[in-house]
């Protein structure tokens, strides 16, 4: 990313404030965040700014992070669960540059974790903030394209359409065929899009000790799940919510009950399954856990 950070450039081009955004903008965003925390799951409109990275590439998350980050914070950025995916590298470098903050890849050490598409496997603790990048904040959007309508539906708690959609899934496929961005009910009031995380991660949101903030830059919405908030995935009594399961452990660290990425090894159907959360995987390997393809004898004790 070629951010236009020109603190040392010709005087004709201005330098930028701490964490890029000016203080007025940060105040506006913080007010939106406070409102979002006060009404868990409610989408608060905010005057999203143009950021020096494209809309759809995490501008909402970046604005939320920029509004809450301080010089003492330690930032971790992940995309697909990995710290070394290109966009995560780019966003981490952005904050290292404009806010001069410490960065880390270790989930435990981070005070702020900005994420796209995953929630870390390591349980988050009080004092940590998880900032989600959100493309389409409206869980009802693909059922009703109009904002004027969906706002009304939220106001009236009119979520029948969503239940009908899930029911039709079951009628047609025998199961709910939503695998990511699986809708949740927050504190018994608002249906919320958890961002396009796999439904595997939904249970981690429930009564999490960490503060969860969601930023959608292009759609100009911020919402939040405060610590210890009820987050329930929508389901039916006879079709309870289920998460994905994998029939093998991570090939590198032998972890079970984690989300795995399928890596294509060759053109003859060779595959391996490894942890999507790279920090979690590295941590386990550092502790001596070995998977079948880690280049060491297979771990025996789990």
């Amino acid at each position: 990313m070629s951010a236009q950070i020109a603190t040392d450039a010709a005087p004709a081009i201005a330098s930028y404030n701490f964490a890029y955004l000016d203080e007025q903008t940060k105040r506006m965003i913080r007010r939106a965040i406070l409102k979002a925390i006060a009404i868990p799951g409610y989408q608060v409109p905010f005057a999203s700014r143009e950021m020096p990275m494209p809309y759809g590439w995490g501008t909402g998350g970046v604005q939320v992070t920029a509004a809450i980050i301080g010089p003492e914070d330690v930032l971790k950025v992940i995309d697909q669960g990995a710290d070394d995916t290109t966009n995560a590298v780019s966003i981490r470098a952005f904050f290292a540059k404009v806010a001069n903050v410490a960065t880390t890849t270790r989930t435990m050490e981070a005070t702020i974790i900005q994420t796209r598409h995953r929630i870390p496997e390591t349980k988050l603790s009080a004092g940590q903030v998880l900032v989600y990048q959100v493309p389409i904040p409206e869980p009802l959007r693909f059922l009703e394209p109009r904002e004027t309508e969906t706002r009304k539906m939220h106001a009236l708690e009119e979520y029948g359409l969503m239940h009908v959609k899930l029911y039709e899934d079951i009628a047609r496929h025998g199961e709910i065929s939503t695998t990511y961005a699986y809708p949740v009910m927050v504190e018994g009031r608002y249906v919320m899009d958890p961002s396009p995380t796999p439904k595997f991660d939904n249970p981690k949101m429930h009564r999490s000790e960490a503060l969860q903030l969601f930023g959608a830059g292009r759609e100009k919405r911020i919402y939040a799940v405060p610590p210890f908030t009820e987050v329930v995935s929508l389901d039916f009594e006879d079709h309870p919510f289920e998460i994905q399961t994998f029939d093998r452990p991570c090939a590198l660290c032998a972890a079970e009950n984690v989300y795995l990425d399928e890596v294509v090894l060759d053109d003859s159907g060779g595959r391996m399954f490894v942890c999507s959360d790279t920090d979690h995987c590295e941590d386990r390997r550092a502790q001596g856990h070995r998977g079948e393809m880690a280049g060491h004898p297979l771990e025996t004790a789990k």
Binding site: P54, Y55, G56, W57, T59, D79, Q80, G81, T85, T86, N87, R116, H117, R118, P135, T179, Y180, A181, P196, T197, P198, K199, F200, R218, Q244, Y259, L260, D261, E262, S276
Partner: peptide
């Protein structure tokens, strides 16, 4: 352009699902 081009970003976690 941002949202169209963001399809270039990795989506393999959701694709896996």
């Amino acid at each position: 352009t941002g949202f169209v081009e963001h399809l270039k970003l990795p989506h393999y976690v959701d694709f896996q699902a």
